[in-house]
Amino acid sequence: MKDKNHDKLYLYPIWVRIWHLINAIMFLALVFTGLTLQYSSVDFEIIKFNYSISIHNYAGIILSIFFVFFLFANRFTSNGNYYQFHIKGLYDRVMKQFMYYSFGIFKNEEKPFPITKERKFNPLQKLSYVLIMYFFVPIIIITGYLLLFPDIIPKNILGFSGIHFVDLIHIILGFVLSIFIIVHVYFCTIGKTPLSNFKSMINGWH
């Protein structure tokens, strides 16, 4: 679909935008409450520990429900195509994009993989999104649910307390995903203007 007045692509259908918005809000709530839980203190509480627990639990459950929705939507709509990639030549493509972000962007070089209707993500984006959405997020969701029902966790895993082991994975992945969010938001400013990608998230047009 092309807009009559602009040379723009309609890349983000309404369900993607709603999912993305909810995902973002829940993600931020989880990162914030996750930090308050991990670094809780008697002397300084931004938010009460039990409130943090409740918000973290509810946000995690909502995020996981929308994650399942995302998996189904990607399976049954063309949006899933954007997450498929070929291993052959992947390294070269990713490195090409990496070199562009590292050097080419400062020389105002042409983007090596411009966005088209068929290519919503550049290779580096695609690789990171696939890793995040199909590997890290499922693990953090599973470990999150295990921590929600700690009695089902084995008492001992690899010599560690089972809960401790599961929580370590959950916390490390939480940190990795938090770093991803920071980088993700920064990369969103690399558009025609620093705000153009954020506008796209609202109106769907790129």
């Binding site: 839980l37 991990q38 809780s40 307390s161 401790h164 929580d167 490390i172």
Partner: peptide
């Protein structure tokens, strides 16, 4: 740690 895990109490200094 050998008996359980307390969120907020068992943070790791190296991590």
């Amino acid at each position: 740690l050998s008996d359980g895990y307390v969120i907020g109490a068992n943070r790791n200094v190296y991590l």
